[in-house]
Nucleic acid binder design. Sequence first.
RNA 1: GCGCCCUUCGUCUAUCGGUUAGGACGACAGCCUUUCACGUUGUAAAGACGGGUUCGACUCCCGUAGGGCGCACCA
Length: 473
Amino acid sequence: MSLPVITRFAPSPTGYLHIGGARTALFNWVYAKRHGGKMLLRIEDTDRERSTEPAIAAILAGMTWLGLTWDGDAVSQYSRAARHREVAGQLLATGHAYYCYCSPQELDAMRAKAEAEKRPIRYDGTWRDRDPKDAPAGVAPVIRFKSPQGAETVINDNAQGRVVFANRDLDDLIILRSDGNPTYNLSVVVDDHDMDVTHIIRGVDHLTNAARQTQIYVAMGWQVPDMTHVPLIHGPDGAKLSKRHGALGVEAYRAMGYLPAALRNYLARLGWSHGDAEIFSTEQLVEWFDTKDIGQSAARFDFAKLENLNGHYIRHMADDELVTALLDFLPHAEGGAALLAMMTDTRRAQLTKAMGGLKQRAKTLVELMQGAMFLFAVRPLVMDEKARQIMADGGRDSLQAMLKLLEDSTAWTAAALEADVKAFAETQGMKLGKLAQPLRASLTGTSTSPPIFDVLEVLGRDESFARIKDQLG
RNA sequence: GCGCCCUUCGUCUAUCGGUUAGGACGACAGCCUUUCACGUUGUAAAGACGGGUUCGACUCCCGUAGGGCGCACCA
């Protein structure tokens, strides 16, 4: 009976897709999926000064990486300017708008005066009821919306509840600039209406706009869409997202080694909840999502939790899938290109084999990459400090003896090697860990690397031993 | 300054008048263990403040404080 659900994500291409925008896109996407509807994508590029092509590309790429697909082609809002002008004309014709001949300078003065007198900063309605015949010559007018006076404008918001604005607090906003281009609030209403958008999900920073837009819908006799205003995401320090953390584009999260699925899961839990559910698939999210379960207070972005979640997703991914994910990640990682250049079928096989041990100790793809460095290590290796220490302490013989044992061993599995070496360590009166650790560190050069036996088995013992021998001289 | 919104462990949150206020991350401690991890067990940790309403408030109302958003010929 009800209309098919149509949501939209409408970013302005003045920068990358930041984390708040990504969550808004996620919610719109999930909501559409939940109701078997569509999510449209509209690029709000009416600000010709600040909109850029690279920004559009970054937004599309970010959404694609996150797996948030949109229906149909992305719509350029600017391309619809003629229709916006048409509607402005209708508003003019029906008495819901009027020409205003105030110059920008006059408006600045008006604002400054209001501020000085500590009055609300609003347009004073100078031209609201003035006869256009009084218009000063040579001034290109703007068109202002005639905001209804008296009474109030009510927003029934799924997340924010019933929000009431006194109409006197909403002044006559400009809907068409003096150069004939439409402004945001007009364009949004016209586009959402024309695109048959049924549900608007966006940040609370648009709440006041929602009131102004509602007035335009009413003036045009159009149905006001269902609205949900999502609380904002703050940086770890509680203030707004700064450049150092939250304000990063999603591509930065990609470069930090986060998985799209983990980021989706994390983002969903910021401002939305489903009982005690913490870790859930996107399918479950789609099944559970309801705008009524969105909270009202802003959330801080917590990298520690994202990292934990990401580690969980890495650990639970199949080895071959993880290898694919890692390979896809490499081009976006610092130093990743070099590794990619060294990739061979042999190394790929080794990588897959090592994945079981590697993924247990990696929280991000960056750490996974670092853990796999031993596969790319080139001689001469740098001797680990602990190994040096053990040798200095007189443990040199033990290390060499262990090496001999490994060479002589007929055991070919990590478990068998382990058993042999364990027995050996006891005869030496040394703790196995004390021997194994420096060997591993010398081989891998990292602290997040897998156990020595995994390393030996993956590399093939001959090669490993040769490397270790180089080190022990 | 004006308008709107928000306020439960350090962080994300559950609770929809009656709970020992629950979970997760993080922290700390124990166990597991050849290292690092993983896993596992446990501990500490919260209703901003002040008034109401009510037999009973985290939950409803008012105020205070703090925070956020908006107030462009930006979106």
